[in-house]
Simulated scan of single mutants.
Amino acid sequence: MSPFLISTGVVALAEIGDKTQLLSLVLAARFKKPVPIILGILAATLLNHAGAGAIGDWLTTVVSPTILRWSIVISFLAMAVWILIPDKLDAEEGNARRKLGVFGTTLVTFFMAEMGDKTQIATVMLAARFHEFFGVVAGTTLGMMLANVPAVLLGHRFAHRMPTRAVHIAAAVIFAVLGVLAWREAGM
C-alpha cells in the first residue's frame, strides 16, 4: 500500500476524538464561519506536517524508541488533565479575533495545538519509515481534513446544542485511556 494511503488512513483514524478535532468544533461554535476555519486548519496542518515530515529522519536517529514511547504516555496523561482546565482564550477572544481574524486565529491556535500531538508524531514516524516526504505530508494533511472538516461543519450547525463541559470531560477520559494504553505498550 502506498505511503500516501497509509498516512491518510492512520491520521484520519488517530484524529477522531483528538484535541484538534475538538478545537475544530470549538472554533466553529465560536466564530460560525466554516470557510475561513477550514482554510486555517488546512494551512496550519500543511505547515505543521511539512515541518514534522522534514524532521522525521533526523528525530528517529536522535531519540530512542523507549524515550519516544514514554513521551507519548506523558503527553496523553497531561492532556487529559489540561483539557479540564478552563481555557483563558475565552476572555481574550474578542482581541484575538479583531487582530487576527477568523482565519488567523484558526491558523495560530490549530498550529499550536498540533505541536507535539499524536498526529504530528505520526507524521514524523511515517516520514521516517517511508522516506517519502510529499506522499506522507499530503496523506497526513488529507487525513486531518477528513476528520476535521465534518467537525467544523457540524460544530457550525449545532453550536448552540454543544454541552462544552461534557465534551471536555469526554475528551479528558479519552486522553486518559490513550495514556494508559500507551503506558501498557511502553512496558509497564
Rank of each mutant, 00 (worst) to 15 (best):
P36N: 03
R98W: 11
R184E: 15
A151D: 09
R69S: 13
L146F: 06
L42Q: 10
L153A: 09
V81M: 07
P86H: 08
H168N: 13
W58N: 00
V62T: 07
F158S: 06
P150E: 15
L153M: 10
M162N: 09
G187P: 05
R30F: 04
P36L: 00
I38A: 04
P34Y: 02
P163Y: 08
M162Y: 06
R98S: 10
I55F: 03
L22W: 00
T66Q: 05
F175R: 00
F103N: 09
L181A: 14
L84P: 04
G139P: 06
L107F: 15
A91Q: 08
E185H: 14
F31H: 09
W82Q: 06
G40V: 01
L42H: 09
P3D: 03
L13G: 09
V10G: 00
A166Q: 13
G94R: 13
A78G: 10
L100I: 12
W70R: 05
K99G: 08
L46D: 01
E132L: 07
G56I: 01
L68T: 12
T66W: 08
G155S: 14
G104R: 05
L89E: 15
A96E: 13
V35E: 04
F158L: 14
P36G: 07
T109D: 07
F76T: 03
I72V: 14
M144Y: 04
L77D: 04
T45Q: 01
P65E: 05
E15F: 00
N95Y: 14
A166N: 07
A96K: 12
E93Y: 13
N148I: 03
T164D: 11
E92Y: 15
A128N: 09
I6Y: 05
V63G: 00
G155F: 05
A113R: 13
